[in-house]
Write a protein that binds this DNA or RNA. Structure first.
Length: 281
DNA sequence: GGCATCCTGACC
DNA sequence: GGTCAGGATGCC
């Protein structure tokens, strides 16, 4: 799925396109996408509302309407697309699960092959996104905040960083990339990182996310921006998806493993597994 | 923690 | 035909 840099890219570009426009009508093609509302109730509630803002919390897209919020989570394969006009072919295309006709004549579309994504209407978006950790690019996420997170848990570092309640926005790609940058093995226990390692990890997470946003996200397969364009960060990945390819830093082949039931990529030389004897705990 | 589940499609 | 996939949740 889109992770923080992809969602941030979508939010910036959507915001420039649709803020100030108005929803004329909504059409739901996959009822589960808008549950617990029925498609009719969803369409009725969304119609004739102006779009005031588009923002992000973690990987959630928050669209502020008149006295109502629309929350979108793209999960694995979701896209938010803006089309200059809706035509029969687009409206009928197989993977469009929900679409909105806008007053300007344009269309906003929620496209999703795997149908894991969800579109919710609510009055309080922060209540609906639930218990999320700090924004990794926000002011509250400081080196001290990361050190606190690391010492407060005794978990493997990769699953810890993937936990949205701990830190909001990282996914499989950017966790692998951040750990590669920091030279930390994905199985390291979080509380065993020393001061220098924690500082490196902090800088690595922020630098990786910022660079990926500059490149407008990573397209491995499905990700597209609202104009249906691929992101440019893929060629900059050092570890993720590069099994057996040379590590950009030392040339050693990147190793693929499974950590927390997620495909995981690391350099066995740059990311040595210190403290492996703790794994049994 | 590990694993199944929600889905579809690509690749081997 | 089997395996894998950028996510999240819920169950042992």
């Amino acid at each position: 799925m889109p992770e923080l840099p992809e969602v941030e890219t979508i939010v910036r570009e959507l915001s420039a396109e649709i803020v100030g426009d108005r929803i004329e009508a909504a059409t739901v093609r996959w009822a589960k996408a808008v549950a617990p509302l029925t498609p009719d109730a969803f369409a009725l509630a969304a119609a004739q509302r102006r779009i005031h803002s588009v923002s992000r919390r973690g990987k959630h897209i928050l669209i502020e309407l008149d006295e109502l919020w629309m929350l979108i989570h793209l999960r694995m394969t979701g896209r938010m697309l803006v089309a200059p006009r809706i035509d029969d072919e687009l409206a009928a295309s197989k993977h469009v699960q929900v679409w909105w006709a806008l007053t300007s004549g344009r269309a906003l579309l929620f496209w999703d092959v795997r149908k894991f994504g969800r579109v919710l209407l609510c009055e309080d978006p922060l209540e609906v996104v639930g218990d999320l950790g700090p924004e990794p690019l926000g002011d509250q996420f400081t080196p001290a905040a990361l050190k606190h997170i690391l010492t407060a848990h005794h978990r493997q570092i990769k699953p810890l960083l993937l936990d949205q309640r701990v830190l909001a926005g990282l996914g499989n790609i950017y966790v692998d990339e951040s750990l590669w940058r920091a030279g930390i093995h994905p199985l390291r226990r979080s509380h065993t990182l020393n001061e220098a390692e924690a500082t490196r990890l902090y800088a690595s997470i922020r630098a990786e996310l910022r660079q990926a946003i500059d490149h407008r996200g990573t397209t491995l397969r499905d990700y597209r921006n609202p104009a249906n364009e691929a992101g440019g960060h893929g060629p900059h990945l050092a570890a993720y998806g590069r099994t057996d390819a040379p590590c950009p830093r030392c040339g050693t082949p990147i190793v693929r493993s499974v950590v927390g039931s997620r495909g995981t990529h690391h350099c066995p030389i740059c990311q040595p597994h210190k403290g492996a004897e703790d794994d049994a705990n």
